[in-house]
Design a protein around this nucleic acid. Structure first.
Lengths: 194, 194
DNA sequence: GTCTATAGGATGATAGAC
DNA sequence: GTCTATCATCCTATAGAC
């Protein structure tokens, strides 16, 4: 396999591992095993754990903005822009760990290397919503806020509780109005490693 | 100093350290130094790092609900319930790291011990907003969502960017309508450890 | 392109003194 | 109630072979 293909595989695995355990909690060894390679090889390809995390962060932001742009330019649709952006956001749940990795990064603002990268990424998203999508400040803020709540609910593995707790079922229906069934299919579950 | 007083001091320090670095990133040694005691003594008082984190998590949830309840019962006020709950939430920024610790915990849903505790806490907050505060599902969801966005912005140390970036200034004004100056005084900043 | 072996450093927890 | 000393584990990163 080419080095580029391996990098892509490792990146995919790293989304899941960093997403589930966070930057410090994740180990390069677990990423390696999830990708089916040896731990030193992960380090060889990405230099350090830190730069691997940065690569995952940038990849997540790229996929996020690309997903938004794709929905934005597919004009054959009568849904509102807000609906479309929401759909694009939930589509990305198929990349296991992406949302959680973003949230983890956003909590590390005090980190000397990850902090600046995370701030830059967050600001880029805000700019995109305001300038390219055309949301006004209140709409962009509400959209972002709902996104953070979704990340939280995914990270909490709250979905495992949906069938047991009626109040939470209600919260899920409010957050995932039309897509709830789809979300339940792709969201990470408690029976996965960690 | 009595054991209880020490526990309280360590708990306070642990909020800040866990909030800034996350559960895995934080070290018991850093908590100890922040509290002015030795590392083994922290372990002695709390058993393990894990149970220290659980203690911090429970303390954060207690302070959160207590803060909400206090605002709820102080009737000498014409502000809306929503405004009051928002104020109570921002007041807690004075407990350095509390919001970020909550967010960190909420991202660890896959952890065998922290996961269940975090889910339970989150559901308790949801129940409180619905049953005791009386929010309808949409209001409670929006309130929670905005809370998660605030946590994110605090964790990102975005406040350092407010003066440099007009778009972010706008986001802050939307999130912290009346309290922005107060928030800027209490929010963690980049020049703190990490 | 990928692995095995391993060095080196950090960290949670224990033992035991005062 | 609190500390010093220290063990054992885990983890990132390097060396070097195939």
């Amino acid at each position: 396999m080419s080095s580029d293909e391996r990098r892509a595989e490792i990146l995919l695995a790293a989304h899941a591992v960093f997403g589930a355990r966070g930057y410090e909690g994740a180990t390069t060894d677990e990423v390696a095993r999830a990708a089916g390679v040896s731990q030193p090889y992960v380090v060889r390809l990405f230099g350090t754990k830190e730069s691997l995390f940065l690569a995952v962060l940038h990849d997540a932001l790229d996929q996020l903005l690309d997903g938004f742009r794709a929905e934005l330019t597919s004009a054959d649709d009568e849904r509102s822009v807000q609906d479309r952006m929401g759909t694009a956001y939930l589509e990305l749940l198929q990349v296991r760990g992406l949302h959680q990795t973003l949230s983890h990064a956003f909590l590390l603002g005090g980190h000397p290397v990850i902090g600046p990268a995370a701030r830059e990424g967050f600001i880029k998203v805000w700019r995109f919503l305001r300038d390219e999508v055309g949301f006004d400040a209140d709409t962009a803020q509400a959209f972002l806020a709902e996104g953070m709540l979704i990340n939280t609910m995914i990270g909490l593995r709250l979905i495992d509780e949906v069938d047991a707790d009626d109040g939470i079922h209600e919260l899920f229906e409010t957050c995932f109005p039309t897509t709830m069934r789809a979300v339940r299919d792709v969201a990470p579950r408690g029976d996965e490693p960690w």
